[in-house]
């Protein structure tokens, strides 16, 4: 393929990932949120595939395949299974409203540009511009964890932040050593399984997975 075409594709996929993050912050319902996560993971896989193709790096192909298998297929299935079993209410409870969230996200994006500018100029990879986006996606993921109150949204926020992390790792140095990537995937998978187990328990003992109920332990 033409190098201009691949570099354009890389940028498009990375920007789409940020876009899905922002859309996720604008969504007030659970099911669209999970769909957006699937979409974002799909863009990540596509991004990795394009990078692998244009740089001719075989181990990024493996990463793309793993992202697709684990984050696009496996984890959403598991989340949907958990949600079906514990009958999560589709409504999200927001502690910051949607306009406020949008403003905050914009602020975070500007902040990531400001922070990562000195890094981007020193990098040599073709997809270095994605580093800015990766910072923004990570920060927005953390924002979702802190401003949405359901247990499942905390999980989705964490997963989205992790997508940003993988984007950044590739932008930095065409991916990390294989052992790190493998470890990271195993870590995510284990985290989801354990989170699932505890989500069931929360549901059993609190009759709901609203994390506002999880604020009882504190100094009186």
């Amino acid at each position: 393929m033409d190098p201009i075409l691949t570099s354009n594709l890389i940028d498009i996929f990375a920007v789409s990932m940020l876009l899905t993050s922002v859309l996720a912050m604008a969504s007030a319902r659970m099911r669209p949120l999970i769909k957006l996560f699937v979409l974002q993971s799909f863009f990540l896989a596509a991004f990795e595939f394009t990078v692998a193709y244009s740089q001719d790096e075989p181990h990024i192909y493996v990463m793309a395949a793993m992202t697709f298998g684990i984050k696009v297929i496996l984890i959403p299935r598991m989340l949907q299974y958990i949600m079906a079993r514990i009958r999560v209410d589709d409504e999200l409870s927001l502690s910051v409203g949607i306009p406020g969230s949008m403003l905050l996200s914009t602020g975070l994006i500007l902040f990531s540009y400001y922070v990562s500018e000195p890094l981007v100029i020193t990098l040599t990879t073709e997809e270095r511009n994605s580093l800015v986006l990766s910072f923004a996606i990570m920060l927005i993921g953390l924002q979702m964890m802190t401003t949405r109150r359901k247990a499942i949204t905390e999980v989705v926020g964490l997963l989205m932040a992790e997508n940003g992390l993988f984007l950044g790792a590739i932008a930095l140095s065409n991916g990390m050593p294989f052992i790190v990537e493998l470890g990271a995937f195993i870590d995510v998978l284990m985290a989801i399984i354990i989170i699932g187990i505890f989500a069931f328990r929360i549901n059993k003992s609190f009759d709901s997975v609203d994390t506002t109920l999880l604020r009882r332990l504190k100094e009186e």
Binding site: M138, L142, M145, A151, E154, L158, A161, E162, L165, G168, A169, L172, S173, M176, P177, V180, A184, D187, A191, I194, I195, F198, R201, I202, S205, F206, T211, L213, L214, R216, L217
Partner: peptide
């Protein structure tokens, strides 16, 4: 359950940030 949940979520965030640090180190 509440304690375990908080523990997993907060430490997972920490672990994710640390991984990004490892990527930077690399």
């Amino acid at each position: 359950t509440e304690a375990a949940w908080k523990y997993i979520m907060l430490c997972s965030v920490g672990i994710t940030l640390a991984l990004f640090g490892i990527a930077m180190l690399y």
